[in-house]
Design a protein around this nucleic acid. Structure first.
Lengths: 221, 221
DNA sequence: AAATGTATAGACCGGTCGGTATAGATCGCG
DNA sequence: CGCGATCTATACCGACCGGTCTATACATTT
């Protein structure tokens, strides 16, 4: 494709050039990505719309054209995190080619790498994007709370599959599979929280593997 | 004690009467208690100083007379939570009169009751005061992060004693006692987080007891 | 009684918050 | 070309933010 440099560039031209040069997709997606990073590395409450706009190089008019409110942006950011985490960390770890319990250990390793990379990049361990929103906004904003809860359930569901497979293969004794998967996910949230409190990803590496020791027995009849 | 009602009441007189009549201690403590409730039931970031003053029936001048900044107040609130939780939930559960592992189950029950009472009172499950601050402020404010981390370690230390006792008594096999205690505490943080995400304290009751299944093996030499 | 320290009250500060209004630029489409 | 839809830019809004300042009331010390 050739774009003449003699004519005055239209928005479309600039958009095409931007996309080709910087891999920045359309404005809405760019706002979304910028907000996701800022919300995760700082926090939802402490990052204002003006900051997001400045960081994304976008005007407030554009922002409110695509997102009717900050809350809508927050929900969209959560949904994008869910998709991205399911497509990367979860997909890598929960492949059925690995024995069920090994999947859990691989997931722990993915979490460790993820948080460690963030520390190396930003100097702070950001923790879980969903856990952060829950702790910060659950008592204030029911929409965000419900959305974050949905994201948590979505990811925890992959754990449940692994637990079910492990029981079937005999790697785990009979137990309450759903509850055990939830307990395991809770454990991973908790050690990410403690790692964030210390700003030290090593805690995930040392304590993470113990996720395989968690067992919630079947309710007695 | 008798206070004459004929003379004009001094501040000290009124203070004495107030304390006797309303059980409200001195102003600083009252601000602290009000802020603790607001921070816990809402969040640190979303509760302003003006709100705290109004709720406590205190002027801004008084506030800044006792607390040089919101951050200092935050640290004081965390410290008070640490003392209060150690004096109540922890003290009730971790009495050496109970077998070590029973202490853990009792602590879970205390956590359940605590969060359930909050739900009944305020309609929302507030979660752990330290975990909330960590998730919200750890990447922004190193002072608050460090203080919250200290509070977490302080409480986790009681878990470690129980784990050590359990290993000694044979209730638990040999394992990394400190790491296991940390893992257990992380687990409890995690299920409180998930309970907050669902606004449902029952999750603590059903998943909590599995804390006794967590084991971090001793590092191989 | 004077002086000093402690506590309280509230107006006030610059800055930021989420969100709106309006005008203009650019788009696809007829 | 012209028209309506889409998108961008920015000034602006009232509310609130953490924090300062000044004035005053009272207690304590001398």
């Amino acid at each position: 494709m050739i774009i003449s440099i003699n004519k005055r560039l239209t928005y479309t031209d600039r958009s095409i050039i931007m996309r080709a040069m910087t891999n920045i997709p359309d404005t809405k997606q760019h706002i979304l990505d910028t907000a996701a990073t800022l919300f995760h590395t700082q926090s939802y409450g402490d990052v204002g719309i003006a900051t997001i706009c400045k960081e994304a190089g976008v005007s407030k008019g554009s922002f409110f054209h695509f997102f009717p409110s900050k809350q809508d942006l927050g929900v969209a950011v959560l949904e994008q995190f869910r998709e991205k985490i399911n497509a990367t960390l979860v997909a890598k770890a929960f492949s059925s080619q690995y024995p069920p319990m090994e999947r859990l250990l691989r997931f722990v390793h993915e979490l460790y790498q993820f948080q460690k990379d963030q520390v190396d990049q930003h100097g702070h361990l950001p923790g879980c994007p969903f856990g952060n929103i829950v702790m910060e906004q659950a008592t204030q904003d029911d929409v965000l709370r419900t959305k974050a809860d949905g994201c948590i359930r979505s990811i925890a569901n992959h754990l449940r599959t692994a637990v079910t497979d492990a029981v079937q293969s005999g790697e785990l004794p009979p137990l309450d599979e759903s509850a055990t998967a939830e307990a395991m996910f809770g454990y991973l949230e908790g050690i990410q929280l403690m790692a964030k409190a210390r700003n030290d990803p090593e805690l995930i590496r040392t304590l993470g593997p113990a996720v395989t020791s968690i067992r919630v027995p079947r309710p007695i009849q």
